[in-house]
């Protein structure tokens, strides 16, 4: 594996991590939106706050990681990607601002009215952001982003093709699926079986929907994104298979109300499908327009990135593991357990 390919792999590692961890946070926002009125939804929203409160900022940083890796390792591809997909990136930026601040504001809101306003900003942008990120992924995967080289990019049609729509819808559905399994597992650990089953049922529905949309998506991807389709049926086929099996396993465990196991299955299913996308378009950074080797930055910088990754591995990663261990401890979940009595 070449140095540039290794950097691409490390960058894509960030994409996978963002899809899983931030994906679960986005999906929690989707369920917050669908939690019902203030009367019935209060306890659910409290569980959502408890689940993502300690982790959402750390999970969000994966996006920064990916962007920085991309512009450092593949500067021309980054400039082309962000310039061409200017419009969806604006929506993503707006969504990120409203989601993060809305979430923080709601936690300290004074009145129910204000909490609903901030909560609506948080929840609605939790749908918008992954949708447009999915559209961006679809645009790149269907070969609609080419290097700039003095040409004006197509600002609209580049991200409105069939694959982009598939990407957007699938992103929202898989985020919801992940989040519901996470929330079910968290509620269960906090000792609230009723809440766990509430999210468990939603995990089942969104999981089945995700699978169904993925099947339906085969046709548009075949006709719209040849390179991706070939890859998914060829070298990436094992990952697609793993995703399918893990997804079915998750649904099976959800039905049995074994939420911790279901969560493992859901994570593997989503990670495998994202990795499958990456493998399918390898060695292209921008499908059909830019290969890793052609757009890689200076070698000295690529070596630098490896060192940065090594530094992250001994600083940020152990810290993150500790954070996840803590939030999964029973005494950290207890707080959530007390709350529903009044909701």
């Amino acid at each position: 594996m070449s140095l540039a390919a290794l950097c691409a792999a490390l960058m894509f590692f960030g994409v996978v991590a963002y899809a899983i961890f931030a994906g679960a946070d986005f999906g929690s926002g989707v369920w917050d939106l669908l939690a019902g009125d203030a009367e019935t939804g209060g306890a659910r929203r409290h569980q959502i706050d408890r689940s993502i409160g300690p982790v959402w900022e750390a999970n969000h940083v994966w996006l920064i990681y990916v962007l920085v890796f991309m512009w450092t390792a593949f500067p021309r591809a980054f400039a082309a990607m962000i310039t061409t997909l200017f419009v969806p990136w604006l929506f993503v930026g707006l969504g990120i601002v409203l989601r993060g601040s809305g979430f923080a504001f709601r936690k300290f809101a004074e009145t129910l009215r204000q909490a609903r306003f901030y909560g609506a900003a948080f929840a609605a942008s939790s749908v918008i952001t992954p949708f447009f990120l999915g559209m961006i992924a679809g645009a790149i995967a269907s070969g609609r982003v080419h290097l700039l080289d003095g040409r004006h990019p197509d600002l609209l049609t580049s991200w409105t093709g069939p694959t982009s729509w598939v990407g957007g819808v699938l992103a929202v559905l898989t985020c919801s699926f992940l989040a519901a399994t996470f929330l079910a597992a968290d509620s269960h650990r906090a000792g609230d079986q009723e809440m766990a089953n509430y999210f468990g049922r939603r995990a089942l529905v969104s999981g089945v929907l995700s699978g169904a949309v993925a099947m339906i998506a085969i046709a548009p991807i075949e006709s719209d994104a040849h390179t991706l389709a070939d890859g998914l049926q060829g070298k990436a086929a094992p990952f697609v298979a793993i995703s399918a099996v893990a997804g079915l396993f998750a649904l099976w465990r959800l039905r049995a109300q074994r939420y911790a196991r279901a969560r493992v299955g859901a994570v593997i299913a989503v990670a495998a499908v994202v990795i499958g996308w990456g493998v399918a378009q390898y060695p292209d950074v921008l499908v059909d327009h830019a290969e890793i080797g052609d757009v890689a930055g200076a070698r000295s910088t690529l070596y630098g990135l490896l060192i940065v990754f090594a530094i992250a591995a001994v600083t940020a990663v152990p810290a993150m593991v500790w954070l996840f261990v803590l939030v999964n401890r029973r005494d950290w979940a207890d707080d959530a357990h007390r709350a529903p009595s009044a909701g």
């Binding site: 940083v61 200076a298 630098g304 810290a319």
Partner: peptide, 23 residues
């Protein structure tokens, strides 16, 4: 596009700092 790889390293290190701070 021209200088991303020249100035990328401090940005990447800043990413780690951001991670640590958020965690």
């Amino acid at each position: 596009s021209r200088f991303g790889d020249v100035v990328g390293l401090p940005f990447a290190l800043e990413g780690i700092a951001f991670f640590v701070e958020a965690i």
